[in-house]
Simulated assay, not measured.
Amino acid sequence: MHLARFPRRVYTPHATPIEKLTHLSAHLGGPDLYIKRDDLTGLTGGGNKTRKLEFLVADALAQGADTLITVGAVQSNHCRLTLAAAVKEGLKCRLVLEQRVPGSYREDASGNNFLFQLLGVESVTVVDGGSDLNAAMQAIQDDLAREGRKGYIIPGGGSNALGALGYVACAEELLAQTYAQGLPLDHIVCASGSAGTHAGLLVGLHGNNAQIPLTGINVRRVRDVQEGNVHALAQQTADLLGLGAVPRGAVTALDEWVGEGYSIPTPGMVEAVQLLARLDGILLDPVYTGKAMAGLIDLVRRGHFGRGQKVLFVHTGGAPALYAYEDVLRA
């Protein structure tokens, strides 16, 4: 796959490390667990959206945009990083925040919400959960056009085929790293939300004939809906790259650890965040990686992976959101 033919801005000029979770592995007594530290990507606070934005912002600049427009939840990591990319490129940024939990937006909230203000967001539009988010972003783009400006719309999570190329690149990166380290992986686990990370990894692994199973842990939707979303986006991404069909059977997105809904804390999430911090000194986030790690921990406890197997967790970042969940995580 010749990714160099796609314009790209470079926000992370190095490969993110793969580390062994030595103490968590010993604590659980099952497979050997490893972690791909995509919380250490470039831009403010890091996280998986940085890889997607490298391709999306390059496209925005090629189109002459002066303002990035995107959408996310009230503590959106994607919105933080899109805003950070805009700052880096000398662009403006306008955000649409969706209250997926009714009444959850607070202008004075900590976490990413505080960072939106610190980074100098041009405007924030708050809408209720279930609103037509595309229409909300289009309205902002139309307003900008009337002012003689040019807005570029980035979908939630940066999750379209162009953005998913960031995780095709990540799959190639981690395959090169595991080859260099002599680390034959038996399985990869990631959070599955807006689907771009999951779909991009799937296409990257499939396109390289890696034959490493990939399991997504859902943070929002039921399994059949999410698996359909991931497969559709994976196929769109494969089509962009000129690859063949992506097998539907390669898509797994388990939904047992979502809890009461998106961003709503669960006991498993709290345990996972505390275990990673206290055993291996790594910060997860309460919305994505906390719930995904809760799923991985539960799968290990159930004996889903054999003792001595090598399982890699893709850490997609989000630690700034921890500060908005301080009361839940202090216990």
Results as ranks from 00 to 15, higher is better:
Arg9Ser: 11
Val10Glu: 14
Tyr11Phe: 15
Thr16Cys: 12
Pro17Thr: 00
Glu19Phe: 09
Ser25Ile: 09
Arg37Val: 06
Asp39Cys: 08
Leu43Phe: 03
Gly46Ile: 08
Arg51Glu: 11
Arg51Leu: 12
Glu54Gly: 02
Glu54Cys: 00
Phe55Lys: 06
Leu61Trp: 11
Asp66Gly: 10
Ile69Arg: 01
Cys79Tyr: 01
Thr82His: 04
Lys92Leu: 11
Arg94Val: 04
Leu95Gln: 06
Val96Asn: 05
Val101Lys: 14
Asp108Leu: 11
Asn113Asp: 04
Glu122Cys: 13
Ser123Glu: 10
Ser123Gln: 10
Val124Met: 00
Val126Cys: 10
Gly130Phe: 01
Asn134Tyr: 10
Arg146Ile: 00
Ser159Pro: 00
Leu174Tyr: 11
Ala176Leu: 10
Cys190Gln: 13
Ser192His: 07
Gly196Val: 07
Gly196Ile: 03
Gly204His: 04
Ala210Lys: 09
Leu214Pro: 01
Gly216Lys: 12
Arg223Trp: 09
Gly228Asn: 12
Gly228Glu: 12
Asn229Tyr: 12
Val230Ser: 03
His231Asn: 11
Ala232Ile: 00
Gln236Ile: 03
Gly244Asp: 09
Pro247Thr: 15
Gly249Val: 03
Trp257Lys: 06
Val258Ile: 15
Gly259Tyr: 07
Ile264Met: 05
Ile264Phe: 04
Thr266Leu: 05
Glu271Leu: 15
Leu275Ala: 15
Arg278Ile: 08
Asp280Ser: 03
Pro286Phe: 11
Tyr288Val: 06
Leu296Tyr: 15
Asp298Thr: 02
Thr316Asn: 03
Ala321Gly: 04
Ala321Glu: 04
Leu322Pro: 02
Tyr325Glu: 02
Glu326His: 07
Glu326Asp: 08
Val328Tyr: 14
Val328Phe: 13
Leu329Thr: 12
